[in-house]
Simulated scan of single mutants.
Amino acid sequence: MSKIIYENPLDSQECIGDFILEGKAEISFPEGAMRLKNALSPEEGQKANFVLWCPVSFPSDVRIDWEFRPLEEPGLAMMFFAAKGRSGVSIFDETLSKRTGEYKQYHSGDINAFHVSYFRRKEPDERAFHTCNLRKSYGFHLVTQGADPIPDASPDSQWYEISVVKKSGKVTFFVGGLQIFEFDDDGVTYGDILTGGCIGFRQLAPMVAEYRNLRVTWL
């Protein structure tokens, strides 16, 4: 039987008082939803990007739901999940190297995680043909992908319901109830099956986007 184990409307600063920001970002709530924007110039490259972690360590089998609204592009939106130190410790353990939002620290550092990039409007080819990508780390393993149904960013963009379902080694991804991809990890090809861990929002400069109604359900 499924059970909601975490809910956060993401509608005020108080809602993210215990969240952990890696890198620098401008976080505001102008319309009752969390708006994320880079604080450093995009000319800084990877240093301008950031990750905002929910500090809760979740079990292995979960459904993660949130709402997303892209306001300005280019850029990229990503969700980390099942994130844990490679030795099994918390991603916030003091024995791990400091992370500052630069991508390599997350896919080839000292943590394991899945991450799904679901709004990719950064490179010229990404802007011509849009895909949602699932990668598994440690390592930079692109394990599956599917077409991205979300339209380009706009100040008048609607809200989109995003869902990740992780049950043992199987990961299924949905946008607006539409299944985008499914990946069944064999626990060998790309390393051991990932169990529980933290979730985090990652965004690439100079994108501006809003998020609300984060919910995690234990399956």
Score class of each variant (00 low, 15 high):
D156E: 05
Q158T: 06
G17P: 00
M207W: 04
E161D: 14
P42L: 02
G23M: 08
F114E: 00
T172G: 04
T195G: 12
K122E: 15
F173S: 06
R121H: 01
I180C: 06
N8I: 09
K167H: 12
E43T: 10
H107Y: 15
F129D: 12
L142P: 00
F92K: 12
M34I: 03
M79F: 13
G196N: 07
I199A: 11
T100Y: 13
I91C: 05
R135I: 01
N8R: 06
N8D: 05
R127C: 10
F80E: 14
P155T: 11
A25Q: 05
I27Q: 05
L76R: 06
E72A: 14
V188R: 15
C54P: 10
S87V: 04
V116D: 03
R35G: 00
G17M: 11
R121L: 01
W159E: 03
R127T: 11
G187C: 13
E161Y: 10
E44M: 05
P70Y: 02
V89I: 11
K47V: 08
T131P: 00
K136L: 14
D110A: 09
R202H: 05
P206I: 01
A147N: 08
C15G: 06
L96H: 14
S28G: 11
L204C: 12
A147P: 01
D156A: 03
M34T: 00
C15L: 05
Y106P: 01
P151A: 08
D18A: 09
P74M: 01
Y138F: 13
L214Q: 01
D192S: 13
F174N: 03
V164I: 15
M1G: 13
I193N: 00
F29D: 07
V89D: 00
L219W: 05
D11G: 15
E123Y: 07
L214K: 01
P30V: 03
K37L: 10
R69E: 02
M1W: 08
Y190E: 10
F81E: 12
D18K: 10
Q105T: 13
A39V: 07
Y138R: 13
T195R: 09
S28L: 05
L76C: 04
A83G: 06
Q145H: 05
